[in-house]
Design a protein around this nucleic acid. Structure first.
Length: 499
RNA sequence: GCCCCCAUCGUCUAGAGGCCUAGGACACAUCCCUUUCACGGAUGCGACACGGGUUCGAAUCCCGUUGGGGGUACCA
């Protein structure tokens, strides 16, 4: 059997992480079985659907690498098909027109509620006589179309995630509305549960993979498959992504749209990896938990999908994103960070070697690309001196250290940097050697030298590893210049301190 | 209320009746590396919701309780 699955988002909001995770499972399953992954936009709710959300959903899926094989299909363009199918059900007597007014349905539910009964339609218009129908029409009532659901039906399926799930017809809420109200003998806007089934049949979907929140739709849909005379597909209901409180993650929980994660500096690979891990676990021994979609697809199966909901955890996402970042080659990382720095307003020199050197240095302590501007500031902007740095520079012995290195680097700047493979390594060794030499020459502690250089060059007490930092700064002749500047600050301070 | 689903460290999870003194990852703590913050390495802390069965033996199977979640539309 060929596997055909689909993701069917509704364009009533931006691509949500829950929808994206369902897309991940669908895509993984399709790839594992060399099947087809279909994208269908469920825009039957004309009121709430917006083209910009469709755009956002398409972009988000592409960004995540969840490429679909067919589509996007739009339900709004397929109304004729749905109406035909509804007409057929009407003709077969499996569906009928119901003329209840909203207030009447409301009143009915009030009574049920008062009696501690489940709210349900009591099928009161199921067997209307021609006279009754004519009377309702004469009143100007607009009918909906309801699909008959027998109370004594038992509906069961074997869910790929949950095993056997069963339902009783009477718990389905009575005959269900499949088309909204409309004038006379027209067929109104068809509704979700119906169009899903028509489309899944038409698109020959073999496996319906969706969130657990759709479990209660499944028995209704199974009845519809039967009515339409088609075999029922396999179902897999995946656990939901939960918020900190353990409830279904919703827009109200803050950051939930894929575009937001992207803007926060998370990579598509890491996000896809994390979403997969929220419910699926890689087989032990074959795979670690840091993986690409391709790797996951190789081993994906519903046997390894958990049944319980999974709370979303920022700590783990951050860690995972850092891991993915650290696995990038310097050139790849550089490609990612360059636009971030440019967007931050930095004038990034056109020097690929230097840029890659910088990326290697910063990449090891980077979790998200959005952290890169703050982390790289010292390389693009003249330092401003923190109070702590100023205080440090006041100390005795500091001036002589700065002057010594200033002179040293002034000399070095006269030479060109050798363009060689291990340029940075060689430069770092050279700086390291010079530092050690000066430590013994000046008779000071290493800690003092290192601290002094850091404060004088960057104006702060913490930052990336110092020696590589110096190497990078030196490559653009920034070291001697900055030391001169630091010296001036010391001079001005001692001047005012004496008076 | 009614129906359905679920239940292992704080979090994500491994676990298919004996390989379990319950494994891994994140987080947390301590130490190492280190001028610093990170990264990295090591160690530690830490869970089978509860009660009954079944069995020689239960985290695993059954029943119940409790707790959590989802659904209950002329939304999707």
């Amino acid at each position: 059997m060929t596997v055909r699955v689909r993701i069917a988002p509704s364009p009533t909001g931006n691509l949500h992480i829950g929808t994206a995770r369902t897309a991940v499972f669908n895509c993984l399953f399709a790839r594992h079985h060399q099947g087809q992954f279909i994208l269908r936009i469920e825009d039957t709710d004309l009121e709430r659907s917006r083209p910009e959300f469709t755009e956002n959903i398409l972009e988000g899926l592409k960004w995540l690498g969840l490429n679909w094989d067919e589509g996007p299909f739009f339900q709004s363009e397929r109304m004729e098909l749905y109406r035909q199918k509804i007409q057929a059900l009407l003709v077969q007597g499996l569906a009928y027109r119901a003329y209840d007014a909203p207030e009447e349905l409301e009143a009915m539910r009030e009574v049920q509620k008062a009696n501690h009964e489940a709210p349900r339609y009591d099928n009161r218009h199921r067997d209307l006589t021609a006279e009754q129908e004519a009377a309702f029409k004469a009143e100007g009532r607009k009918p909906v179309i309801r699909f008959k659901i027998e109370d004594d039906r038992e509906i069961a399926w074997t869910d790929l995630v949950r095993g056997k799930v069963s339902w009783k017809g009477r718990d389905l809420g009575g005959d269900m509305v499949i088309a909204r109200a409309s004038e006379g003998s027209d067929i109104g806007q068809p509704l979700y549960n119906f169009v899903v089934v028509v489309d899944d049949i038409d698109m020959k979907i073999s496996h319906v993979i969706r969130g657990e929140d759709h479990i209660s739709n499944t028995p209704k849909q199974i009845l519809l498959y039967e009515a339409l005379g088609t075999a029922v597909p396999e179902f897999a209901h995946t656990p939901l992504i939960l918020n900190q409180a353990g409830a279904k993650l919703s827009k109200r929980d803050g950051v939930t749209s894929i575009a937001d994660f992207q803007a926060m500096g998370y990579s598509a690979e890491a996000l896809a990896n994390y979403m997969t891990l929220l419910g699926w676990s890689p087989p032990e021994g074959v795979m670690e938990e840091i993986f690409s979609l391709d790797q996951a697809a190789q081993h994906f199966s519903f046997d390894r999908v958990n049944k319980a909901g999974a709370k979303f955890d920022w700590d783990k996402l951050n860690w995972l994103n850092g891991q993915h970042l650290r696995r990038l080659a310097p050139s790849e990382l550089s490609q990612q960070l360059l636009p971030v720095w440019q967007a931050a307003g930095y004038e990034v020199p056109d020097d690929a070697v230097w840029l890659e050197g910088l990326c290697v240095l910063l990449g090891q302590s980077l979790n998200r690309t959005t952290e890169a501007p703050a982390m790289a500031q010292t390389f693009f902007v003249e330092p401003t001196f923190e109070q702590e740095a100023v205080d440090h520079l006041k100390q005795p012995n500091v001036g002589i250290i700065i002057q010594t290195f200033e002179k040293l680097f002034r000399e070095w700047e006269k030479e060109d940097l050798p363009m060689q493979e291990d340029l940075w390594k060689k430069l770092e060794e050279k700086i390291q050697a010079a530092i050690h030499e000066q430590i013994s020459a000046l008779g000071v502690k290493k800690g003092l030298v290192m601290k002094t250089l850091r404060m004088a060059l960057t104006g702060t007490k913490s930052g990336p590893e110092l020696v590589p930092t110096i190497a990078l700064l030196h490559a653009h002749k920034e070291v001697a210049k900055r030391l001169t500047q630091a010296n001036k600050i010391i001079a001005s301070m001692s001047g005012s301190a004496d008076t």
